[in-house]
């Protein structure tokens, strides 16, 4: 089963199954929606608090910081809707030994552990992201060109790929850190660093979050396309980073599954 059309069909089945499941817990769906919007409001309040006490953070104005925050929310909400819940189940699969069933299925195991569950209840963050972006734009009133918006969307897509890769790399560690059941909390915390401008970090940390664990590509670099204009070099580097990290992720996953010896045996 290597044909892409078959994977697409399989994905549709997963998606339908998820919608049905979600419909069963409607109360939970609305509660989740409200909580996500609450968290966005809380962070927006923090940004407001910072700018009540200053006019610029490492050269970023309030509007620019909201632009960064909105872009981060957009990438993260897409990540959470599409992949986070599935990846979050990897430690449990390893611990319970049910990873055996995943590995013996006639599909790519990485596809299965990445895409099995969708979280429609993360839509609250997705909607809030556009509100934040709208607010940022109302503060900045930037004269945007179509090329800038196009580059921003492209970089957002690269950011999503990189965020997926970071998440997947960290969750794959579960094969060795079997007893650690809060890996996804750590992943969450690390990912949240991406909502701050990388310029606030000391030089060695800024380098690390740009190239080693490329969190800067998740939101700050896409935001740059709106803030500073389109640079061909940035687009190339972002594409290269996304491709490289997806490749490394897949290698690491294969290495991990090969050395996996099952919990039940």
């Amino acid at each position: 089963m290597t044909h892409p059309r078959r994977y697409l069909r399989l994905y549709r089945v997963f998606a339908r199954n998820n919608v049905v499941r979600e419909m069963e817990f409607r109360g939970n769906f609305w509660a989740k929606l409200l909580t996500s919007v609450g968290w966005v409001a809380a962070f927006a309040a923090i940004v407001k608090l910072i700018f009540a006490n200053t006019t610029a953070v490492a050269g970023w104005t309030e509007g620019e910081l909201f632009l960064l925050f909105g872009t981060f929310l957009l990438v993260r909400s897409l990540m959470d809707m599409l992949f986070t819940q599935s990846l979050g189940k990897i430690p449990e699969l390893v611990r319970m030994g049910t990873m055996d069933f995943v590995l013996t299925k006639p599909v790519s195991s990485q596809f299965y552990v990445s895409a099995r569950y969708l979280s429609l209840d993360e839509a609250g963050t997705f909607l809030a992201a556009w509100l934040v972006l709208g607010y940022a734009w109302s503060l900045l009133r930037l004269p945007l060109t179509a090329a800038q918006v196009g580059a921003w969307l492209f970089l957002v897509a690269c950011g999503l790929a990189i965020l997926y890769a970071i998440n997947m790399l960290l969750m794959t560690l579960a094969f060795w850190l079997v007893r650690i059941d809060n890996l996804s909390a750590l992943t969450d915390t690390i990912v949240f660093v991406a909502r701050y401008p990388p310029d606030i970090f000391p030089r060695y940390l800024a380098f690390a979050v740009t190239y080693l664990l490329p969190l800067a590509f998740v939101a700050a670099i896409p935001t740059g396309a709106l803030k500073e204009g389109v640079h061909a070099a940035t687009l190339c580097i972002a594409t290269g980073m996304a491709a490289l990290f997806l490749f490394v992720t897949s290698l690491f996953w294969r290495y991990a599954t090969r050395s996996y010896t099952s919990a039940s045996s």
Binding site: I50, N53, T54, A56, V57, A58, N182, A185, L186, D188, T189, I190, F192, V193, Y196, P197, D199, I200, F201, P202
Partner: peptide, 16 residues
């Protein structure tokens, strides 16, 4: 998970 977010904040203020 407590440490990382709390340690980013002083960096933000230093830059402010």
């Amino acid at each position: 998970t407590d440490t990382i977010p709390t340690l980013v904040m002083p960096l933000i203020w230093q830059a402010s």
